[in-house]
Design a protein around this nucleic acid. Structure first.
Length: 501
RNA sequence: UCCCCGAUAGCUCAAUGGUAGAGCGAGCGGCUGUUAACCGCUAGGUUCUAGGUUCGAAUCCUAGUCGGGGAGCCA
């Protein structure tokens, strides 16, 4: 087969003849002219086939091809404003490779359940295509950032003994008769490795058996975890800050087209610059108790109520249009919008119902508790850049986190809250390097000391201050792309009760 | 585990106790600049399951199954 030209390279071939191979994304056949949007994996391009002497032999075959048929065409590239993407190919030769029939994903709207059950085909649609390209770049930038900054990749095991944080959130696997668990973090293993290589990271899938059904949860997701020796909490936070900035910069540099196609507000991403905000837990509590927090939510209530009225008016208006004798396509479009607006309205109503509860939660927040989802939302919405929340109470955090030497009630940890409601994308900490303190925490939490002997060894032999963090890839991609649900940010999402295809 | 909502044609949805419909998709025909094109015709249904109320149930009641959203928990 002759080497075809990529649609992404068409701009370099204007006026010349090219051969493209790909799939029919959309077809609008006419009696004597046929428009086809072809996708070849690198982009989308309009083909124009006119019925004339040159095309007579294949015109009727092409015209009848339906969505997702594969073909090879030859023609001349023209710049044309009427074509999506700005270029079109006027076809002179065509070779049908496979005529598809009854492709399930039509140009009209579909429910999320249907699309997820057809994930293997949904990849071909524009939105998943854009999102997964950005994911690939995020993953590449993750590796580059650490590889270029002197970190050594250490692959940590997927099968792990129970030793970890709570075993109740882990998937249990039968390992030749012994119970082992799918890893939910490689951190403890990394701590050992960073004493050998100084700066290390692991990157791979991680598993949580939490029975969560929300837009922020998957049972299998990807996490990158760096771990650094001779590092203080501030050092680790500085790395996290540079790291997140580099991810956003790279995606902005390479994917502004995809972001725009996804409807992402680029200015929000361009504003992601150092320094991010740093708030100690104490300050978070103060903020939650403050009039600013209450006003934010009260204003929210008013704004949402206004928005609901607005939606209601819009829905009525469109409903009138649907019942009128307007053109059918206008009515279809209006009906589609009505469905979307109704969904938005239901969501807003649910959010409104939660606000009084959130006001109470914030007002009555007591020192010592963990910050809940609504509390995080309040904190991140009161800031225009990502926020590091640090120094949480010891009681709500894991045993390995370093006790703050100035205030023994808290540990040296941090969470990074992304803006725009995605919530926590990073959790990290300085690790307790003092043998006696660590042992005391293990005993206090009633953890089986024998399982942690190897981990305690790290504090017996040349213990140094060290720390690290974990970044959730899917939440990060969701934030950068502006997609609401992280199930769209991983090729094959695994959720509670869902593992097909 | 808890709360709210839903399940009708391949898809998205209507039908407000009284003959199950529309658009898209599919098939056929028409149309020389379309952007979710448009026009005409055709095919397409065990209204999630099991009980119940009723002269009559897609519609009301009970239980279950599956799905969506949220809470908790988390990246």
């Amino acid at each position: 087969m002759k080497q075809p030209t990529s649609i992404s390279e068409l701009k370099n071939h204007v006026g010349r003849e090219v051969t493209l191979s790909g799939w029919i994304h959309h077809s609008r056949p006419g009696g004597k002219i046929c428009f086809i949007v072809l996708r070849d994996g690198t982009g989308f391009c309009q083909l124009v086939v006119e019925k004339n002497e040159q095309t007579a032999s294949f015109y009727d075959d092409i015209k009848r091809l339906s969505q997702e048929s594969s073909l090879e065409v030859t023609g001349t590239v023209h710049a044309d404003e009427r074509a999506t993407g700005g270029f079109e190919v006027r076809v002179t030769h065509a070779n049908v490779i496979h005529a598809a029939r009854d492709y399930p994903i039509t140009p009209k709207s579909h429910g999320i359940d249907f699309l997820m059950r057809h994930r293997h085909l949904w990849f071909r649609s524009q939105r998943p295509w854009n999102v997964l390209r950005i994911r690939a770049t995020v993953v590449d930038q993750i590796r580059r950032f650490f590889n270029d900054n002197g970190y050594v990749l250490i692959d940590t095991p997927i099968f792990a003994p129970a030793a970890g944080e709570g075993a109740q959130t882990l998937f249990k696997v039968d390992y030749f008769g012994d119970p082992v668990y799918l890893a939910q973090t490689g951190q403890l293993y990394l701590e050992a490795a960073c004493m050998a290589h100084r700066k290390v990271y692991c990157f791979g899938p991680t598993f949580r058996a939490e029975k969560s059904k929300t837009r922020r949860h998957l049972t299998e997701f990807w996490m990158v975890e760096p771990e650094i020796a001779f590092a203080s909490l501030d050092d680790v936070i500085a790395v996290a800050e540079d790291f997140v900035c580099s991810l956003v910069e790279r995606v902005l540099r390479d994917h502004s087209d995809e972001l725009t196609a996804l409807g992402r507000d680029l200015s929000e991403l361009e504003a992601i610059k150092k320094p991010f905000y740093r708030l100690r837990y104490d300050q978070c509590v103060e903020l939650l108790h403050s009039s600013k927090a209450r006003e934010l939510l009260e204003n929210d209530l008013v704004a949402k109520q206004a928005r609901i009225s607005e939606l209601g008016a819009k829905i009525d208006e469109l409903d009138t249009l649907v019942k009128s004798d307007a053109a059918q396509w206008k009515k279809d479009k209006a009906a589609g919008e009505v469905i979307e607006l109704r969904e938005d309205r239901v969501e807003l109503q649910e959010q409104m119902g939660n606000i009084p509860h959130h006001i109470e939660l914030a007002k009555n927040f007591e020192w010592g508790g963990d910050l809940g989802g609504s509390d995080e939302t309040i904190i991140s919405r009161l800031h225009d850049r990502p926020v590091f929340c640090t120094h949480y109470p010891k009681g709500v955090k894991a045993f390995y986190m370093r006790e703050c030497r100035d205030d023994a009630r808290v540990v040296e940890n941090f969470d990074l809250l992304a803006p725009q409601g995605v919530g926590e994308i990073i959790g990290g900490s300085a690790r307790e390097e003092d043998y006696d303190r660590l042992l005391a925490r293990i005993e206090h939490e009633h953890l089986p000391q024998a399982d942690y002997e190897w981990y305690l060894d790290l504090r017996r032999f040349g213990s140094v201050p060290h720390g690290g963090f974990g970044l959730g890839v899917e939440r990060t991609v969701a934030w950068i792309c502006g997609v609401k649900h992280i199930r769209e940010t991983i090729p094959y999402p695994r959720m509670m009760g869902k593992f097909y295809p």
